[in-house]
Every structure is written in structure tokens, then in C-alpha cells.
Amino acid sequence: MIVTKPSAMSAGYLSCHDCGKLLQVKLLPNRSALCCPRCYASVHFRKPHSISKVWALVITAMILFIPANILPIMRVDFLGVVDYSTIMDGIIYFFHEKEYGIGLIILIASVLVPLFKIIGMLIILLTIKFKWRRGLRHKTAMFHFIEFIGRWSMLDVFVIALMSCLVDFGRISSTMAAPAVTYFSSVVICTMFAALTFDSRLLWDA
């Protein structure tokens, strides 16, 4: 049995996305563009066009995720031998070298986290699309988790930045970035924007 609880919107209240101030709609001036009296941000009941923007960003991230993993992300020159490696190659290298901790960190940060974000956002979007009403509390918690882990996928990009800057000994040994860096960082940016544009209140509106 579902107990309906009042949402602020149905009670005629609107809360500011930026500072959280609660405003009573009937007391607001009757204009099309409203702004919060406390922080001057524009206010809406829900973030405008949230669902379609998030769909667009998640689909873009899914498409970019493919070249990010197939193309090489790092180029290593060692004594004249050029070697390209993808994200997976780097992880396998660490497991071969018995550096399980670091291997696991990179595996989580650069493969599992983006994958989890994309799948998680898809589950949330489908929940809204088909008005599933079960486990909303867990889905909200999952959304907060997706928001939290978003930035950690940048780890691999920073590692490559540091490696290409530090390991630069001319012909003896040097490391450079390879094309997948651009795709990979685009995936991170898209999923982060998806989490930012999504309005979790839409989950509870159905």
C-alpha cells in the first residue's frame, strides 16, 4: 500500500535549487522569469527539460565509452620501441606486476565507475519513463552515490598527465597521451553533467 505524502509542489510551494529556500507560489510576483529573493538564482518547480537532457547526455556517454575503451589511451616509447596501450592493458599490466591494489583502483575508477554511472542513470530514467514505484528510496540513494563518484573517473586522465610530464627522457623512455584520452574525459564530463541536470524529485512525482 502506498501512502501519499504531500510534495511541496502540490502544496503550492517551490524550493530554490541553489540555496534551498522555500517559496510560497501565490506570494510570488506574477512574472515568467522568477528569481529567488535570497540567492537571485532563477527558480522552477523542477529543473527544466531535465529528462530529455539527461537522456541525451547518457546516450552520448554510452557512444563515447566505446572509443574510450577500444582506442589506445597511452603511448610508451622505450629504447626506440613504441607501444600503445588501452585502459584495459594498463589494468592487466598492474595485475601481472602483482600490484593488485593499484590495479583495482584503476579498474574501479576508469571502467566500473563510468559503467555504473551509465547503467544507474538508465535505470533511473526507465523508472520515470515507466512509472515504476518500487525501491524509490534505494534509487535516490543510488543517485546520490552516482553524484558522489562522478569526479573520481578523472583519475586515469590525471595519471596520464603526470606520466607524460614526468617520464620524458627523450629516446630512452617517454610516455605520451593517445587519442582515447579525449573520448574518455568526454565520457566523464557527460556523465557528470547528466548527474547535475537530473532532478531526483522527478522520481517521486510519479
Partner: peptide, 29 residues
């Protein structure tokens, strides 16, 4: 009154003491 930023539940504002947390009763945010 307070609205939960994550699920828009409307509730009465409770005053909390220093070191305490207020959590939404519906979505636990």
C-alpha cells in the same frame, strides 16, 4: 516549512542542535 531537495517532501522545519543531523524521513537524504 522545509522541502527535501531530493524528493520534494514538505515537512515542518525542526531545529537541530550543534552536532546533530536532519534526515528526510522519506528518502533518507
Amino acid at each position: 516549512l522545509t522541502a527535501c531537495p531530493a524528493c520534494d517532501l514538505l515537512m515542518e522545519t525542526i531545529s537541530i542542535k550543534q552536532g546533530e543531523k536532519a534526515v528526510c524521513p522519506r528518502c533518507e537524504t
